[in-house]
């Protein structure tokens, strides 16, 4: 189904919003729940590549719309990741594989976001080595923990849309 990616995006959006809300409550301590990387995993396993790419791009642009970073940086990086994941599906063959990839992708995307934002406002970029490492650690943990419910939601939606199951699901 051609519009599967859009419906999937709408289904994923509450999770993004939820992560933002959770970050809101932690705003005073500067910790952020970053899940955009995690949201890519399940769609990249089952959607066609072009659909996964569109999904990743929209996900990135949605994220960027509310944060002052150079336009397109995160979105295009997510697209690159989506292309890579959708052409290397065996990596996400089983649950441990998915978890591993989710953690790596989430940490990587979070890193890209931070670098991009420090490019946009250089003043903020100094003296944050340990904040950054803490943030990346959090992204890794959220990527692993958040994957299960997010992937469950996304799989359920894809099932309803008759997207063919991933060939190597155990």
């Amino acid at each position: 189904m051609g519009w599967a990616w859009l419906i999937l995006l709408l289904a994923t959006y509450p999770w993004l919003l939820g992560a933002d809300l959770a970050s809101d409550t932690l705003a005073s301590s500067s910790l952020v729940f970053f899940i955009s990387g995690t949201c890519l995993i399940a769609p990249c396993r089952r959607l066609k590549r072009w659909q996964a790419v569109l999904f990743a791009a929209c996900l990135g642009f949605l994220f960027e719309a509310r944060r002052p970073i150079p336009d397109g940086t995160l979105a295009l990086c997510l697209v690159a990741i989506a292309i890579f994941l959708s052409s290397n599906r065996p990596l996400m063959r089983n649950t441990p594989g998915m978890l591993r990839v989710a953690a790596i992708v989430n940490v990587g995307a979070c890193l890209i976001w931070f670098v991009a934002s420090s490019y946009a406002s250089p003043a903020a970029a100094t003296d944050l080595a340990w904040h950054l490492s803490l943030q990346l650690l959090l992204a890794g943990i959220v990527g692993t923990i958040g994957l299960l419910p997010i992937a469950l939601t996304q799989n359920a939606v894809m099932d309803r849309l008759n997207v063919p199951p991933a060939p190597d699901t155990p």
């Binding site: 790596i104 940490v107 990587g108 890193l111 931070f114 670098v115 080595a129 990346l136």
Partner: peptide, 13 residues
């Protein structure tokens, strides 16, 4: 991929 991200991370740190 892992190396790519790790290298980036190392670069920043």
């Amino acid at each position: 991929v892992f190396f790519f991200f790790f290298a980036g991370f190392l670069y920043v740190i």
